[in-house]
Structure formats: structure tokens, C-alpha cells
Design a protein around this nucleic acid. Sequence first.
RNA 1: AGGCUAGUGGCACAGCUUGGUUAGCGCGCUCGGCUGAUAACCGGGAGGUCAUGGGUUCGAAUCCCAUCUAGCCUACCA
Length: 1079
Amino acid sequence: MPIKEAEKSYDHDKIEKKVQKFWKEEETFKKVNELREKGPRYSFLDGPPYCSGKIHLGTAWNKVIKDSYLRYKSMNGFSLRRQAGWDMHGLPIENKVEHLMDIQSKQDIEENIGIAKFVDKCREFAIENKIAMEQQFDQLGVWMDWDDPYMTLDPKYMESSWWTLKRANEQDLLVNDQRVISWCPHCGTALAAAEIEYEEKVDPSIFIKFPVTGEENTYFLVWTTTPWTLPANLAICVNPEFDYVYVSKDGETYIIAENLMETVLGKQVKIRRTKIPAESEDEEDKVIEEKEVMYEVIKTVKGEDLVGMAYDYILADEIPKQMEFDSEIEKVHTILPGDHVELGEGTGLVHTAPGHGPDDFEVGQKFGLPIFCPVGEDGCFTEDAGKYDGKFTKEENDQIIEDLQAKNLMYRVETIEHRYGVCWRCKTPIIYRATKQWFLKVTDIKDKMLDEIDKVEWVPKWAGEGRFHDWVDNARDWTISRQRYWGIPIPIWECPDCGELKVIGSLDELKQESLNEINVSDSELIHRPYVDEVEVKCDKCGATIKRIPDVLDVWIDSGVAGWASLYYPEEKEKFEDWFPYDFITEGHDQTRGWFYSQLGTGVISMGKSPYQKVLMHGFVLDENGNKMSKSLGNVVSPEEVIEKYGADVLRFYLLWASKPWDDLKFVWDELLNVNKMINILWNVYVFSTTYMSLDNFNPNEITEDDIILRSEDKWIISRVNSLVKDVAEDLDNLFFHKATRKIYDFILDDLSRWYVRLIRGRTWVESDDPDKLGAYYSLYTALVKLISVLCPIAPHVSEEIYENLVKGVNPEAPESIHMLNWEYDAEAIDEDLEAKMDVARQVIDASIRARDMAQYKLRWPVSDITVVSPDENALKAISELEDIIKDQSNTKEVLTAAEFDKLSFNAKPNLKILGPKLKGDMGKVVKGLKAADGNQIKAELDANGTVTIEGIELNSEEVLFDSELPDDFVSSEFDGGNVFVNTNVTLEIRQEAMARELIRRIQDMRKDLDLDVEANINVDVETSQEFKDLIVPQSEVISHEVRANSLIITDTEECSKDSKDYTKEWDIEGEKVIISIKN
RNA sequence: AGGCUAGUGGCACAGCUUGGUUAGCGCGCUCGGCUGAUAACCGGGAGGUCAUGGGUUCGAAUCCCAUCUAGCCUACCA
């Protein structure tokens, strides 16, 4: 089968659909994997995207990096595991389902809908979303094992996470503790640090007067932005090191940190200046200064002097519970020392509510304060809050302020704009609550985690060394319990009587331990609510015990993917083959997410990091550098791009536009560049197939004897092999931007703009000319190599070209381009030749530039050009590639020289030196130099170092030269020297030039007629006697170039033409020329 | 408040590791050319205080310090 002529234009939609259909029907992905089965393993783990239903450009980028890299690895012979992963549990889905089912609260779920139904809905929703996203990835041409993915809702996956918790418990890393944690009042659950986002929020900023017990009109000034925590206030902290002042103002005394006094109370002394104009000019204006003291400092004490003082609780009437504490516990409502108190904001006296702040909690524990938290899981005050019972915390801010104002305990009320934490999904501002939660004691394994980070190879380096290291270093214990429904149930059964824990590590274990009969599927059994019903026996006291009701933080779900996706430890074989992973890659948001959760659970389960190399990639931003978000309305969807330009263009663009670890500004105009590149590749392909199919070219039937390879042929073959080599290096380093930019430059510069241009003439030759076949062969080789480099990145268009170019002529060829090995021919690389070609190109560019500036048409030949360069290697390159230069510069001869001897020089005196030296004799020398032949003077100076003018000896410093080009020359610079073009038009040149002019017009007319490239024509030309004489000697050339069977050139008078022929009248260099053609 | 990253013509980027001609490329703009790859190509031109300020050096886009701006991450912003 021969090479087929390609479709004239690049239709991405048609090609990509066709290729994807081919992959599906032929199960190409599977076959490629089988092909590499025996190769060395390269293990990769897909970070599971959350099943939100829609992928965005960031997700697309992520998968494109993975896909391109893995396709490359596969071509290098590695056996891969390309299992897709899906993150399918968690609050985001619960929130969406709540929305769909119009659910308002947890109570709704538990009492009206039922957990079973709610969980079912969540499962259904997650699976629907997964399917939708699969299609989107598929459209991108991402090759992953979509049929056998790992899913966090898979019971076999989930039991692995149970095992991890069991491991944690064995190492005493699993603890239940009362602590103050972040809490989402809407979702009614604890949140981990990773689940909190920050937004600008406006909150009250109030200064409260806490009356000092037993001292009339004396107050501690305290600042807070959360009035709703005041009902839980149990103490005030001061820093024992700081100085505090007693200030008397408006009849009251305030205690405040000295450094913050003026910030809060204002300037202590105000100065008013009154100017009294002077009465006469001799006197100066009088200024009267009046000092007004706003308040007075009575005394200064150290913070530690305040410690132990008591204050009257400010909401004593509203909250009876508070007064119980007051009477029972000594430290309640007193001043306590705290090193955490700083002077950045506030008053230096910190309102302390152990139930509402992590620091406060610690202080409370230290001094034996009760952990008083009169707020329920819905964010509403409880009975303990007395007057405020049942009200939502944040909404009660105003009421509390009002109550305090009524008691005259408010010093000042303002608002403040600051960043405040919100729930990552429902955007509700979080509150701090003291609750009992389950924790992984990350603080105990932190050192090990930090060690492991150092062993991992990070790309870029700062991702691990800076960012991630910092995050882990600052990590607190990980709150893993969630008071929700759709998640992995925490496998802890706790005995209410003796407190004994039983942590179940697998489904089998659960079934064995269960006291109930189990008659539901594994998938149901391992989810709520079924697992809640399973009762087991307490190992210690024998009591029948139930599971704690919480589910796991979803970050655990994905954190355990390394072994859970391999069903370890229930299954061992695959685990041993693939764990730990050679490579993972995710966005920089995953520093605190997946990179962290895997490392934590990995150290707990395996004692090491599950990954060995990490590429941390950037974010896709809009063209202004802003994050794409629905609220800004600047989101560009991958589908939109694919529809306009296709998946290959998008894929290439994503890897080309920025360094992988930098953020990527998505700019539509830039996409056009890539689109253009692919179009040009396609044009080269069309160009190739047009001639190759015409000549029935079959590369497999060519032997060395059939072809002649010119320098440019060897050059392009060398270049393409260099490309393969260089791109491999870049891809190995994960420098996708460098790899794609090299490919881009190769297609545009080397292949299209240079090589195709060089060989254009040769493709016009008919018959099996070895020179033409040499061009075909080289072009073919270059194209096939090129697509094999391109195919990991733009897999569709490469496959399409491969199908025709390779499979079309070789039935034995692998059935997909993705089955090729990544190879290059080191022997074919000739760096010396590549360097020489660079010189030749520059010379040609320079000569064209020179002609262009002189408005000497390139179409007209010149008799010679002279390349002048001091660099011998450059001159050598030029003579070696002389034919190319001749052809492309349209010159009959290429001369080289170290110096251009046709330059004429005019000598002139160096006035700066000669002026002072000669004085009166200057005139003579000026005249003499002007009259003399500059060239002669230069020669003499070069030879002797001196020259004598009018009897005066001058040295080379004293004479300057202007160089002058002869009229017939134009010149232009290139990197290594100058090119001089001889533009003298001889008769011969004029003849050839006019022939070219004529040819150009006939070609133009052929095009008008839309003739086939190979069609023959008959041409009549009528023109003046003079013009006829110029072109007749060129008849043969003209006929050949325009494929004319006959060419009749006549004087105007003799003319008689057939009116049916296509006839056009032209003006060529002032001559009237009438051309008729017929085919 | 701390950490990380970045700031180079209108736009998007390279160069910075290892200091050294006239800071480079593409797009865009503009003027001109070419015409059998033509939705292509070639040439000329305008357009840059390399964020700012210091320092080191014979010499700084590049190294150092400080500042500003932006993005991200973090924080016990009470």
C-alpha cells in the first residue's frame, strides 16, 4: 500500500475522534501495556481527583502531565501501572446532596431522610460524577486504566484504611482527646487544618472593660473580635514580662499594656497651636501653645504584678453557670500569665475562653480552669449560656455588645476587616469549639516525616525543602474524626464501661468479631449506617460494645491510596511489585493535602514515604493572573478549548506555556501559536504526501543505491536525531516546557522554514531521480522521527500521521505509534554539520536582507556574493555548503575572503592627532590625502606602517579611512562577518531574471485555473521584439518550470490567439506581455 | 506576622545556576516584499530605567541586602 495523499487541512475534531475510536476498537492501550509487561517497572500513583463532576483546566493540566510523561516512559520500555483514582467520599458530596434533597440540617438527615438513604444518594452522586469526569479525561486523550480504577468507596480499598488506623493504634498514635478544634457549624463537624480556607471578613472589634474586683471604677481593658466567646470567658491573660499602666481618664481607671496605650486610648497629650499675627513687620508672629492632657498615667507595673488579681465577670447576670465556676474554682475570673500574649494588636490583656481557642485551652488546662464551651455542634448556644440559650453564636454578637453597653462596660465598638477561616466547602465561618475528637499524633512522628521528606526527590527543589518542610514542621496533631455520614467509618469500637478500644483492621475481622448476623453486601456493611449496627464484645470486660459514630477525614481516604489501591494487606503480590511509588505529581495546593496525608499515613503504616519523586506543578490562572473561579466568571473549561482547537493543541499548550512548577496564565492568543505549529506540521505532512503519493514513494523499497543524500538531507536527519536525544533529556528531567519548545522550534524553523524550503526544487523533478528520492527519504525520515517525539504530548495527530506514513507502507509496523521504542540514531548526529548549517543559514539570511534593502528582487539572480569573515571555520562551512547558499541566495558564485577587496577607501587625516602636531602644514596634508588614492595609502600603511604625503610622514594612527562600497554592491552583516552582494545586471542575468518574471506569472495563472500540480499546459506569449529576445534563450527553462508542452513566443504583430484560452495581460518591467495558457 | 515563588517592550516568555559584545524569541503593531506549503513565508522599523533603592565588582538582568507589588501556603489575628 502506498502513502496516501493527506487531507488538505488539519481538522482536529475529525482526526481526534477517529484516532480515539481506533484506540477503543483495537484496545490499543491494553496492547501497549502488554507489550511492555516484561520491561522494568516504573510505578506511578494517580492523585485521585475529587468527584465533583467537572474537570477544569488545572485538572486537565495535571492529567496531561501524567499522561505525556507515562507515554514517554512506556516508549522507553517501562512496564507501567496507570490506574486512575477517584476520591469519592466526604463533605463536598454530602453538601451537594443536601442541596439536591433540600436538606437543612443533620437532624433532617438522621430523623427524616434516614442515614441509609442519604448515604445511598451520596454514592449514586459520586458515581455519576465519576462517569462524567471520565469522559472529559477521555476526550483529552488521557490513557489510564479507566475500567479498573481505585475508588475510595470500594470496600476493599476502605478496609486498607482501617488497617492503617489499626497500625496507628498499635503504635499509640491514635488518641481520643478533648481539644479545641476548628468546627463548621453548618456541617456540624470537626475540620482539619487542610479543610479551612481563608477569606476577608468584617467582624466586630470591641474593647471591653472588665471591672477589677474591689477597686471602684477600675477596669482591665480587653480586646476581642469574637464577642460571642465572652459567655465562655474564664480568665484574662497578661504577659508577665510586659509593662502595664494604670491610666486615669474621664474619671475611670484602665489597665492596659504600656506599649499599646496610645494606640488604643489616643495621644496622651494634645497640643493646640494658635497663631497670633504680628502687629508690625518688625515682630514675628506669635504662637501660643496650649497643651491638653487627655489622660494621666497613674502608675506602671509589670505583667506579673497583675497576675492573681480578680475581676468581676461581665455577664454574671446573663450566665448563671459562670458564677458557679467563680465560686468553685479559684483561678476562674482572675489574671493569668501567658507567654502567648503579644503586643501586635489589642490591649496586651487577652480574653481567655478555654472552650473556644487552642491557646486558651492550653492555659485552661495549665491552671485547672474548666473547659467551658456553651456552644453546640450546630453553632448555637446551649443551656449553659443562660440568656443566650438557643441563639446562633455569631448572630448573637450584637446582643452581647448591647448587653455590655447597657452595663457601661464597653469602652469602644468598631469593626475590623481581616482574614478569617471558613469551611472549605460550605464557606461558613468556622468557630473554635472544645470537643472530644480522635487524633493521629502527628507530633510524635514528625521527625520521622521530616527525615522522609529529605529522602524524596522534589521537583522543583524548593517544593520539598521550603514549602513542604515548613508545613510538616508546624503540623499539629491531625483531627481525623468527622461527625458525618458519607465517609469511611472509623473502625473503633469503644467500651462505655471500661474504656477499652477495639480497632478493626479488615472486613473479615469485622465479620468474625460481629455478634450480629450480617446479611448485607460488603459495600453496605462497610458504610454507615450498617456498620453502626455491628456490635462486638469488649476484650477486657466482655461487654457488648458499639462503634463510635464518626467517619474519617477524607484526607485519610486518599492518603492511604498507595497501598489501599493495591488492596494491601489483604492482597500482597501487587503491593510487593509496585510499592513504593517512583513518581507522583500534583498541584502546589497538595502540599498540605495529598503530599502530607500520604506521608503521614505512610510513615504510620509502612514507616516510610510512599513516594520517591514528586513533581509539584502550578495552577492555571486566567490571563490577568487571577485564579479562575466561578464567582469571577473567568473560568475557561477544557471542553471549550478542545472544541475550538482540539485536545492535542491544548495538551501541547499546557506543557509549553510555562515551567511546570510555575503558575500558568491561560491566554487564548498563545494557544493560537500552538495551533499554528500543529497546522504547519500538518502542512509539511500534506506537502510530503502530495509528492510522495504522486511518485508512489515507498521508503521500504529504497536502497542506498537509489538515493543521493545532499548535505541538507544529512543535516535534517542529524537535526531530528538530536531532537530525539535532547527531548529525552528534558522529559527525564520533567522539563516539559523545554521539550515542547524544542519540538516547536524544530517544526517551525528547521523542518518547515528551512528544510522544506531547501528541497522544494527537487520535488519538481520528474522520474525516479536519486536526488529527488534522497529528499523524499530524508523528509520521510525526519517526519517519522518527529511524530515519534511528539506522540507522548500530542498523541492524536501523531497517530494519524503514523497510520498513513508508516503503517501505510509497512504492514509489519507496530499498529500504533505508541508502541514504538524511543530511539535515536547516534551515528546520524553530526554536530559539526549542524553548526555549519547555522552559518550557511545566516549567510543566506544576510544576503537576502541585503538584496531586500537594495530592492533587488530575490527572483533575479546575481553573479556573485562574497562572504567575508575572519573565522576560518565559518569560511570552511560556507564552501562546504556552497550549493545551498548558491541556490537560496540565487547567486551564480559564492566567494569567500578574510577581507573584501572590492571596498574602496578614502583616506582622511585624524584631526585630533595631526592638528596639534602639524599646525600650519595641516592644509597640505588634507589636500594631499583627498587627492591621493585611498586604497594605495591603505596598502602602503598596511605594508610599511607609514606613508608620506606632501613630504610629511604619517603613521597608521594618523590616517583614518572611510570605506565605500562600489555602486554595484550591497552588504549586510551576519554573526560571523559580512556578506557582499554583487548586483550588477549583465545581459545573461537580465535574461534569466525576465524568465523568472515570466515563470512567476504563468504559475500564477496555473493557480488561477486550479490546475493539478502535475498537469501539463501549452503556453503562448506575445510581447515586444525586445522582450522576446530576452526570454527566447530561456525557453527551455521556462517550459520545464511551468510544465509546458509547448511554449510559443511571438512579437505582438504576429499574434493570433484562441479566445477560449486563459489569457492575461501583464506588465513586466515596463513591457507589455500577454500570456495565454491551455491545458 | 512568617514562609515560598515571581516581577524583563502592549501581551506571553527566555536569559539568572557559572556576572562579560549591542538583553533575546514569539505574538501584536507598523512599513515593505514574496506568491504552486499560501489560514504559509521573507525583510525593515518602532517599542525595554530588566519592579525600586543600595551594595560587591573593572563590569550586574544575573551575586548580596533592603523596600515595594502580586500569587500561593501557613499562623494560637485572642
